[in-house]
Computed example of a mutant assay.
Amino acid sequence: MWWLTILTIIKRFKHKVVLNDEDAKTANATVGSHPAVERVRRAFQNDLENIPAFLFIGLVYLFVPAPNWLIHLLYYTYLLARIGHSIVYAVYILPQPSRGICFGLSFIIVLYMSLHVLIVGFIDYGKRHKM
């Protein structure tokens, strides 16, 4: 996510567009936006909508009995899918379904980990309360 912030700044300077009047005066730019800047901002927004959920469920998933190889596989695959999504969305734009595949893979990983946590939680709850 951090490098998308840097990329947004680079695109703003390249296309000479800023958001505020005072910035326009000092940067010799116009107030507004540019499609290239907006594309990077949408990629960043997508990261903001998806990565916090992974960080939360990823932390909780560490307390669920799962093989280490599976945890590593899920975490690294998620990381690569999100990096791939950002690249094909904001840096090297590829036609669909490239972005959709990257998004879908990361979504399925979070969904799987969430369901795994819920199922293990219900099983553990049932054992404790003799259901």
Rank of each mutant, 00 (worst) to 15 (best):
M131P: 00
I87F: 10
L94A: 07
I83M: 10
V31G: 10
L73G: 09
A43V: 03
K130D: 12
F107L: 13
L80A: 15
N68S: 05
D124L: 15
A53M: 04
I119L: 08
M1K: 03
R42C: 07
M1E: 11
G32H: 11
V18W: 00
G121R: 03
A43T: 11
R99E: 09
R41G: 01
N46T: 09
N28M: 09
L4V: 03
V120L: 00
G32I: 06
Q45W: 02
N50K: 06
H85Y: 15
C102Y: 01
F63Y: 10
I93S: 08
F44G: 01
E38P: 01
A29E: 05
I83N: 02
R39Y: 02
A66L: 03
A27V: 11
N46V: 03
W69P: 02
L70C: 09
Y61W: 12
L73D: 05
I93F: 08
H116G: 04
V117C: 14
Y76F: 15
I119T: 09
V18Y: 00
A53F: 08
H72N: 13
Y92I: 09
R42M: 07
I93R: 13
S86A: 12
N68T: 02
P65E: 06
I108F: 12
V37H: 00
V88I: 13
N50F: 02
V91C: 04
D47V: 03
G32C: 05
W69K: 08
E38H: 04
S33V: 00
T30Q: 10
K16D: 02
Y89D: 11
G104C: 09
P52S: 08
E49M: 05
T77Q: 07
Y78N: 04
V60G: 04
M113Q: 09
V37I: 06
P95M: 15
Y89Q: 09
V64Q: 11
L111R: 07
A24E: 00
A27M: 14
L115V: 13
R42T: 06
L7S: 01
P97F: 11
G121E: 08
V91W: 06
V64D: 02
P67G: 12
P97H: 15
A36S: 14
I57D: 07
L48S: 08
A24M: 07
S98C: 06
V17T: 06
K130R: 05
F44C: 01
S114N: 01
L4F: 04
D124W: 14
A66W: 02
K16V: 03
A36K: 07
I101H: 04
S33L: 01
Y78G: 03
E22P: 00
D21A: 08
Y112T: 12
I109H: 15
F44R: 09
K130V: 14
H72P: 00
A29I: 04
